[in-house]
């Protein structure tokens, strides 16, 4: 019996170790290929580690490939989308959670049922609208459709509903205005959900591809994923350069995730227990 147990245990460790290696291998290879000299990643048999590590591909990305610009584009877009959507969603979520007004239930139901509609449906007319407004190929082109999210409103509403009415009532008796209550009472109390949503929104915006690909029509406005896909078209043969580009694209989200892992995991759980 004891023998069987330890046998199982080693089997489990072996499997998990193997799975971990398989999961990490692409990342390890990416890192190592990005510092191989040109042609180093196209050898047979493939090398796992470079013989003579070099930074030349990173230098090339920075000096010739405009990567700083793409990086800044990504940062500007992701940060703006995160802040604006957090502001708009939290205001709406608060209204749905704590106010009574005519049409509330109908409006809320309309929003919930609209969550079924995939974003791709809106993209063609949205492009035409933004084109008319002169916002194609500007940061606003990405920020405007990202300004709100029904799901974000829904999550914030759920959270604010758990804040006791008596707190709001007390503030109101003390003479606080609606906006003051929102700013000084609701927002601080809703901080956990706001942090989680901020993290999801930031990472979602950073990783987003289809819409930035559509709306950023000029090279200098590309976000990192669009730039990387575009680079792939021209430099598919430069494996090492592409890997350096992948590292730069991935690194920021990875750092943000590692720093705020627990909020992210909590966010998944919030999403999975809805309804």
């Amino acid at each position: 019996m004891k023998f069987k147990k330890s046998y199982q245990k080693y089997g489990l460790y072996l499997l998990m170790f193997l799975a971990a290696v398989l999961t990490l291998a692409p990342f390890v290879w990416m890192l190592s290929a990005s510092i191989m000299p040109e042609g180093g990643a196209n050898q047979f048999p493939p090398r796992l580690f470079p013989k003579t590590p070099t930074w030349e591909h990173y230098q090339r990305l920075f000096r010739q490939m405009n990567i700083v610009r793409y990086f800044l584009n990504s940062v500007i877009v992701a940060v703006s989308v995160t802040f604006i959507s957090l502001l708009f969603n939290s205001m709406a979520g608060y209204a749905f959670a704590k106010y009574r007004f005519p049409g509330k239930n109908k409006l809320f139901k309309l929003l919930l049922s609209a969550m079924v509609i995939p974003a791709q449906v809106t993209m063609l007319p949205l492009f035409l609208m933004l084109n008319r407004m002169g916002l194609v190929n500007t940061y606003w082109g990405i920020i405007i459709p990202g300004m709100t999210s029904i799901y974000g409103i829904f999550l914030i509403r759920q959270y604010i509903m758990s804040i006791p009415d008596s707190l709001i009532e007390a503030a109101r008796i003390d003479g606080a205005t609606d906006f003051y209550i929102y700013l000084r009472l609701i927002l601080p109390l809703a901080k956990p959900i706001l942090v989680t949503l901020a993290l999801f929104t930031f990472m979602g915006s950073w990783n987003d591809f289809l819409w930035p690909l559509i709306v950023m029509t000029g090279d200098s406005m590309y976000t990192l994923p669009v730039a990387l896909a575009n680079l792939m078209g021209e430099h598919a043969q430069d494996t090492e350069l592409m890997m350096a580009g992948a590292v730069i694209t991935i690194l920021p989200v990875l750092i943000v995730f590692l720093a705020m892992q627990k909020y992210y995991i909590r966010g998944i759980m919030l999403g999975s227990v809805k309804e």
Partner: peptide
């Protein structure tokens, strides 16, 4: 470890896997 691929950029991951 198992979660790392989830948070990484899909486009970058697709580029890596292409090679």
């Amino acid at each position: 470890t198992f979660f790392l691929p989830v948070v990484t950029t899909l486009v970058a991951v697709a580029v890596i896997w292409r090679y």
